[in-house]
Simulated scan of single mutants.
Amino acid sequence: MTNAPAPVPTSPLGATLVIGATGTTGSRTAAGLAAEGHRVRAASRHATAVPGAEPVRFDWYEPATHAAALAGADRVYLVPPLGDPDPAAVMLPFLRRARAAGVRRAVLLSASAVPEGGPAVGKVHQALPGLFDEWAVLRPSWFMQNFIHRHIHAASIRAEGVIRTAAGSGRVGFVDADDIAAVAVRALTDERAPDSDLVLTGPEALGYDDIAAAVAEATGRPVTHHRLTYEESRDRLTATGMPPEFAALLAGMDRAVAEGAEDRVTDTVQRVTGRPPGSFRALLARELPGGR
């Protein structure tokens, strides 16, 4: 009589479909899931390879890509289509299809400035609890990475040493995308889903003058914050090719920052992950070329 080999431990979960798996939070979420041994289907428009994950092609505007992407998935991380002022038009049909295909938990990336039922992705937030028994909406503040990676702020810092906003002296609890992803992994895989929206911030609220000073100190190059009016900000964003309605939405968010709407910090990252959120200066030291 021979002894049968011991079974190899496997994740009790099905696959997690990570939409936007090459983006700022999607790539980190996919990596975090894979590091914990979960099956990951990494969805992007070009089925780009992601370490530890199965690449799948997915385009919000091509429903023919949706069924194959959902195959074998029982949970999904949702990054809305970038720049779409009405993402619900494409997201809600997909979510109904996902539920029918066996997805039981959905985690949506929204924003701290967008409440349930509000503009843009706020409509998807409002619908999510009625579609899935297990769900969460992540509402992070502005990303710290906006000042060092692919973003209009990072580009203007590199080219001109300038950050332009209509936020005035308003402060924001900027959050590290690594912390957003860490919360996403917990929301996707913990035994109990949050079944709520989670406002995510860093450890302190900073004004754009503070951000400029920190980047200047880290790089040794002058960086300043130029204050725009709402109209100037809207027109500048539109000139980059952004849809006018979405440009107006973003400029309006800056105006709300100037009025104090984002001057807050939360304990959500600590509470969900068990560790404190990272600071902006720590991010600069870790990721910015020439940081110190």
Rank of each mutant, 00 (worst) to 15 (best):
L237C: 04
P140R: 07
R105C: 04
R227K: 14
T48R: 14
R271H: 12
H153C: 13
A282V: 02
P93N: 04
V114P: 06
Y208F: 15
A167W: 06
A35W: 11
A31Q: 01
P51G: 10
Y230M: 05
P7Y: 03
L108P: 00
I180M: 12
A88F: 03
S27G: 07
M242K: 09
G102A: 02
H149I: 13
V223C: 02
A31Y: 04
F143A: 13
L13G: 13
A214G: 09
E62Q: 15
T240Y: 04
A193I: 03
R97D: 15
H225D: 03
H153P: 12
A167L: 07
G72N: 05
A282N: 13
L249M: 15
S27V: 07
E232Q: 14
G52L: 06
A216H: 00
R171E: 01
E204N: 07
I211R: 02
G72I: 08
G290Y: 03
L237T: 02
V265L: 13
P276N: 06
A98F: 05
L95D: 00
G278T: 10
I157M: 00
I180A: 05
I19A: 10
F147T: 12
R75W: 08
T2N: 15
Y230V: 11
T219W: 10
R164T: 14
V8S: 14
G118F: 01
A47D: 09
V18I: 09
D195P: 09
G122S: 05
P244E: 02
E191Y: 05
V114L: 12
L128C: 00
A166F: 07
V40E: 01
F132S: 03
G26L: 03
D176Y: 14
A166L: 03
P9S: 01
P277I: 01
A67I: 08
P140I: 02
R292F: 07
V185P: 04
V8Q: 14
Q270P: 11
A98D: 10
R75G: 01
L131Y: 02
V107R: 04
A136Q: 01
V18T: 07
I148Y: 06
M144E: 03
H153A: 15
Q270A: 15
P277L: 03
S11Y: 02
A100P: 09
Y230K: 10
A167Y: 02
R104C: 11
V175C: 00
P55E: 07
L228N: 11
L200E: 08
G72F: 03
A64G: 15
T29W: 11
P81V: 02
G20E: 12
P9N: 06
V124M: 03
R286K: 13
V8L: 12
T201F: 08
L108I: 06
V79L: 15
H125I: 04
A64I: 12
A68H: 13
S279W: 05
P63T: 01
I180Q: 03
A31L: 06
A218D: 12
A42N: 00
P55W: 10
M144Y: 07
T48M: 11
V199H: 15
S233L: 14
L284A: 05
R57T: 05
T10D: 14
R286L: 09
A212Q: 02
T165L: 10
A212R: 04
L250W: 08
L250H: 06
